[in-house]
Design a protein around this nucleic acid. Structure first.
Length: 820
RNA sequence: GCCGGGGUGGCGGAACGGUAGACGCAGCCGGCUUAAACCCGGCGGUCCUGCGGGACAUGGGGGUUCGAAUCCCUCCCCCGGCACCA
């Protein structure tokens, strides 16, 4: 067919036409279950992490949401009702910083960004239920964030206390531990400082074990995410051992994972922040030196503390080792951290590298108390690494016990005498949720001189974010400047009171948004439990790996708490999780500062949304980082162009029946099988596209043969049906031109197993595992026949030793291996 | 240091113990065209070759197996997480 006669493929026009049709029909809106008319169709919930509306969508979003879109279309066409919502994580620092920089209200900036993103999403043609859209910064949403906070507060799971916290001097706010990366602020990269402040916390540590153990309830989460969460929670089993200060009898408990090395403790170390440091030294000769060390240490950042050689000072006091009554010197050193364990340690320099380094520097005793079973004599004073099957030595009545038994025996011995007990340490800290910034959800609390900390009653929610003149962070919340708003009456006694002026971490907002989607327009409650239990847990969650210990840990914590409150009927929010790789270009993550960003708008403008959707998923395995290629997208654009021209030719010829088992009919069934299996069983999105390339290539080889018009039509229709989840606009257009309608509701094709199997197969003949010949035989040829055909081959005979094969291995329809 | 994930042509990658390199990009050859682009068809691991074919190839070494990119051991390298956590 001549090029000039063919109507050209114009992605812009085709895409606009079908986007308008889907919007007019509300094609992807799903109603909530109606108890009087139960829907018998199975339901599923496909969810992608909601975008932060910072400016516009980037390729990572396109990747994420297109993957979810493919699943949504296939599940819908398989007859399921699919909840596939979208919203905006709309509070947060970038909008507020932009307001400070450029003027304007953070709300205006945020809403402008939301509009831009929504327009881009619609331009991509994603099958979203827009009736459930939420923005976490709207009062209709954050009212319920506040309501949830109050439920946590009632249970003692949200509390206020003074504690050492991480402070970002640039953003002028405290940060959660999860938001500090290598001692720096996750947002701006500034080195964080330590401050002691009164702040709000969520008691996530109460759920440390549940967060670890209940991963067993998860159907499919990536190993790397589970590992990161496990590392983050950092559970370690050991013992609490109580030392006493010689002379005064004050108790100094320590946490150790190695109670078996207790006889090797030769000194004792307190963190400089330890509350007993002053009491132990006051009035002694050591007071000035210790006080000077503590002062000096306070000026060091966490990064500095770790980088330097270990140092410390002797207090002049001694602690009594409970197992042998031996006094050991008490030191103060900043390699011991106040935040972990009890802020004090027993030092066992023979078996701990840090203690060993410290002992070497200050000439302290090193005493070996565990040894390899062969009993090789160690060097005096040396560090002895952990080995297998080690046994206790020089440990009083416990000498000779294998180390694990020694651990148990010594812990039991201490417990009997009230000198210690088995204990578990966690790295996880409570979640610091308050922020000294404007653009966040107000904490619904009132401070009253008479009544103390008083929750705002539910019927007074939402506590609206007040208007202020100046958003600039000054170390206290900008909300404090709204005097009229701050001054209020105490809900308890009616007297004058002041509102809490801190706002919540935005990760609080996103810890429950997936629940709100299920019942997004409910004005009477955060959600209706029946409806939420109908849709959740999320059957497939998709998002970036960067949230492995932030959002994904917090959302799990929220779900468990809400389940304990009987507000939900499940304990894990996301049954299956998929974490996608990042999109790189020129070898680095796409970023504005590197100037290597390709905007989705550019690509859509040039090649159309369908070509971009195909290419972004064709680049490689979804879980790996991928390299964007400007030329690569032309390949998928070409594929769509080929399909376009093919379908118009087929349409022009009119309907023709396909012969039942023609070659292309078989090829089409094989493709159905591959595409469906790859996506649904293997969660692989790129190989189905390769299969579609192959099918189209095969059709092209014979499309001009009039005798094969029937099978060409069948294979073309199948290709359109299979490519629809990836390229829904062009597939829909061509489906219509072939006389069909509403492909997005057409049942997903099923492969006929009889047609998937090939009629003739190529059987490989190997001699001693090396390929020597190929046989083309009917499928199902008997084994003995395959062997005699193989033996008859000259090429095989040339490699076969005299006397024929010693052994033959036959894999039917695949291979014959002759072993000589 | 501990934990997790990787290492296959010029590039992205495929191969679910059984034909290594599917498919795409780039490249090369031919057709179409006045010409170019588009489009259509074809060729692409390395080395040797008597042009029939042969040898070697999936980070290195070893093993299991009739058969290993795939499973096991070991070493090297890359990416990510945790880390003065007692």
């Amino acid at each position: 067919m001549e090029q000039s006669e063919t109507e050209r493929y114009d992605p812009g026009a085709v895409e606009a036409k079908w986007q308008a049709a889907w919007a007019a029909e509300e094609a992807f809106t799903v109603p909530n279950p109606d108890p009087s008319a139960p829907d018998t169709r199975p339901s599923t919930y496909v969810l992608e992490m909601l975008p932060y509306p910072s400016g516009e969508l980037h390729m990572g979003h396109v990747f994420n949401y297109t993957m979810g879109d493919v699943l949504t279309h296939i599940r819908r066409r398989q007859g399921m009702t699919v909840l596939r919502p979208m919203g905006y994580d709309a509070f947060g620092l970038p909008a507020e910083n932009a307001a400070i920089r450029e003027g304007g209200h953070p709300r205006e900036i945020t809403n402008r960004n939301i509009e831009a993103i929504r327009r881009q999403m619609k331009r991509m043609g994603w099958a979203i239920d827009w009736s459930r859209e939420v923005s976490t910064a709207e009062p209709e949403y954050y009212r319920w964030t506040q309501w949830l906070f109050l439920r946590f507060f009632e249970k003692g799971l949200a509390y206020r206390r003074e504690a050492p916290v991480k402070w970002c001097p640039k953003d002028q706010t405290v940060l959660a531990n999860e938001q500090v990366i290598d001692g720096r602020c996750e947002r701006c990269g500034t080195e964080v400082e330590s401050r002691s402040l009164t702040q709000w916390f969520f008691k996530i540590t109460d759920y440390a074990d549940a967060l670890l153990d209940e991963t067993a309830l998860l159907e499919s989460w990536p190993e790397r995410v589970l590992t990161m969460q496990r590392n983050w929670i950092g559970r370690s089993e050991g013992a609490r051992v109580v030392f006493e200060v010689q002379g005064s009898g004050e108790k100094l408990p320590v946490f150790t994972t190695r109670p078996d090395t207790l006889f090797g403790a030769t000194f004792f170390v307190l963190a400089p922040e330890h509350p007993l440091v002053t009491a132990l030294t006051s009035g002694t000769d050591h007071f000035d030196e210790v006080a000077e060390y503590v002062r000096h240490t306070a000026g060091r950042s966490a990064v500095e503390r770790e980088a330097k050689e270990k140092d410390g000072v002797f207090t002049g006091r001694y602690a009594i080792n409970p197992v042998n009554g031996e006094p050991i010197p008490i030191w103060v050193a900043d390699y011991v951290l106040m935040e972990y364990g009890t802020g004090a340690i027993m030092a066992v320099p023979a078996h701990d590298e840090r203690d060993h380094a410290f002992a070497e520097r200050y000439g302290l005793d090193v005493r070996q108390v565990v040894a390899a079973p062969d009993g090789a004599a160690p060097e005096q004073g040396a560090f002895v690494a952990h080995t297998e099957n080690e046994v206790l030595v020089d440990s009083g009545e416990f000498t000779g016990l294998p180390a694990p038994e020694g651990k148990r025996a010594i812990t039991a011995w201490l417990a009997e005498r009230g000198l210690g007990e088995a204990a578990i340490g966690y790295r996880l800290r409570d979640w610091l949720l308050s922020r000294q910034r404007y653009w966040g959800c107000p904490i619904p609390i009132v401070h009253c001189d008479a009544c103390g900390t008083v929750p705002v009653p539910d019927d007074q929610l939402p506590v609206l974010l007040p208007e202020v003149e100046d958003y600039t962070p000054k170390g206290r919340s900008p909300l404090a400047a709204a005097e009229d708003w701050v001054m209020t009456t105490c809900p308890s006694c009616g007297g004058p009171a002041r509102r809490e002026t801190d706002t919540m971490d935005t990760f609080v907002d996103s810890s429950w948004y997936f629940l709100r989607y299920a019942d997004a327009r409910n004005d009477d409650a955060a959600w209706d439990r029946q409806i939420v239990d109908y849709w959740l847990p999320v059957k497939q969650y998709i998002g970036g790996i960067e949230h492995a210990v932030l959002h994904l840990l917090y959302a799990r914590f929220f779900t468990k708490v809400l389940n304990d409150m009987e507000l939900l009927g499940f304990r894990e929010p996301f049954s299956r999780l998929f974490t996608q790789g990042m999109i790189h270009r020129h070898g680095a993550k796409m970023s504005k500062s590197k100037g290597n960003v390709v905007s989705p708008d550019e690509a859509v403008q040039r090649y159309g949304a369908d070509a971009l959707r195909l290419y972004i998923l064709y680049m490689g395995p979804a879980e790996q980082d991928k390299e964007w290629s400007d030329a690569g997208i032309e390949g998928t654009a070409r594929l769509l162009d080929r399909i376009w021209r093919l379908a118009l030719e087929v349409a022009a010829r009119g309907p023709v029946e396909a012969p039942a088992a023609a070659d292309l009919v078989r090829a089409a069934h094989r493709t159905i099988d591959r595409v469906t299996d790859d996506i649904l069983r293997r969660f692989q999105f790129h190989t189905p596209i390769a299969a579609l390339f192959e099918l189209v290539n095969e059709i092209y080889k014979v499309k001009d043969d009039p005798a094969r018009a029937g099978e060409v039509r069948f294979a073309t229709e199948t290709a359109l049906s299979l490519i629809q989840p990836y390229a829904p606009h062009v597939a829909e257009e061509l489906w219509e031109r072939l006389g069909g309608s509403r492909l997005w509701e057409e049942p997903w094709p099923e492969a006929d197993p009889a047609l998937v199997a090939a009629e003739t197969v190529e059987v490989v003949v190997q001699v001693n595992g090396k390929l020597r010949d190929r046989l083309h035989v009917p499928a199902g040829t008997r084994e003995d026949e395959l062997v005699s055909l193989a033996l008859a081959s000259e090429r095989v005979q040339a490699h076969l030793a005299d006397g024929g094969p010693r052994k033959t291995i036959v894999v039917p329809d695949r291979l014959v291996n002759l072993v000589s």
